[in-house]
């Protein structure tokens, strides 16, 4: 059995692998969006820009200060996360009581600014970032070749996704977060610093995006507009999964990556749009998304 539906199994499994890797990025990014949306009710249009910043910061730190991949894996998300918290503190907080549409528009403006400024400084052609030595090479399985780095992406993304889900849904900190956004006055009354909690949550969501950016730096082309197209896909993923559902975002992210990978085998041109088609179908059948609660 070397062929399925007339497609060699090696091609199929290769695309499946690529799909899972893309899916890992979708999962990380949509997870961040879902955290920010689910807890703060902010549609973070700057999420793609934060992902891009994560990758750019990694490359720039390496070029300027020689900071290596492992340090960047922690440092870049922290730097970008702090930046995100500044945005939350100085901008988003001031329009907290307004219609949610305004937070969408505000972050859209912020994304335009960040992307535009970086484009003017670095141009849109990609920046090179070489992979750490340890990841050179890969596993040779009988039906496919799995580069070490790709395997690393999948593992680390899964661990981070699961950890985030666990923290928000199962720990005390997560309970504070959910309660604080449910009824912030009551939580204030219990002596919990809700504004700080909100800042931290936004910062954390942004960190997840930046973390995905660091993971992407060695394998994708790093440039100031890398976040703008993936953002729309991730929005679709979040809608399919059900807005605000943490687990839904993770599972749907991986699933959409795989669907995209398969589409590449059978109808390559359509692979960039298949997710939107899935979204339309899901919405017609289940308006609140696969994992969303009925609104």
């Amino acid at each position: 059995m070397t062929e399925i539906l007339g497609v060699p199994i090696a091609v199929l499994s290769g695309q499946l692998l690529l799909g899972i890797i893309n899916g890992s990025f979708y999962a990380l990014l949509s997870l961040g969006l879902a955290v920010i949306f689910g807890l703060l009710k902010i549609i973070n249009f700057a999420h793609g820009a934060m992902y891009m910043l994560g990758a750019m910061v990694t490359v720039i730190m390496f070029d300027v200060m020689g900071i290596n991949y492992w340090v960047a894996l922690f440092l870049a998300p922290v730097v970008v996360g702090c930046f995100g918290m500044l945005i939350e503190y100085f901008l988003l907080r001031r329009i907290a009581g307004q219609d949610h549409i305004y937070s969408l528009l505000l972050t859209f403006g912020v994304a335009l600014m960040i992307q535009g400024i970086l484009t003017n400084i670095y141009g849109v052609s990609g920046m090179r970032y070489s992979m750490p030595e340890i990841f050179k090479g890969g596993f040779r399985l009988d039906f496919m070749y799995l580069p070490y780095y790709r395997a690393w992406i999948i593992c680390v993304a899964l661990v981070v996704c699961f950890g985030t889900w666990f923290m928000i849904e199962k720990t005390k900190l997560g309970a504070y977060l959910r309660a604080g956004t449910e009824d912030s006055q009551l939580m204030q009354g219990f002596g919990i610093n809700v504004p700080l909690l909100v800042s931290l949550t936004y910062g954390f969501g942004v960190m997840l995006a930046a973390f995905a950016g660091v993971l992407a730096a060695p394998v994708y082309s790093v440039n100031p507009v890398m976040g703008s197209n993936i953002l729309i896909v991730v929005f679709a993923v979040v809608v399919i999964g059900g807005m605000g559902s943490i687990a839904g975002a993770i599972i749907t992210g991986l699933l959409m990556g795989v669907i995209e990978g398969f589409t590449k085998v059978f109808y390559p041109e359509f692979s960039s749009a298949v997710i939107f088609l899935v979204m339309v179908i899901v919405l017609l059948i289940r308006p609140s998304g696969l994992f969303g609660k009925e609104a």
Binding site: I43, D99, H100, I101, L104, I232, F235, A236, V238, V239, M243, E269, F270, S272, A273, F276, L277, M279, V280, L283, L284, P287
Partner: peptide, 28 residues
């Protein structure tokens, strides 16, 4: 028909995704 049942930001994101589908049609 697809989007009208959703409100607010949901509506915004769905119209956005639909427009991306249309964009794809125009490219192809």
């Amino acid at each position: 028909i697809v989007a009208i049942r959703r409100q607010g930001i949901y509506f915004a994101m769905i119209t956005l995704a639909l427009a991306q589908l249309v964009y794809f049609v125009f490219v192809q």
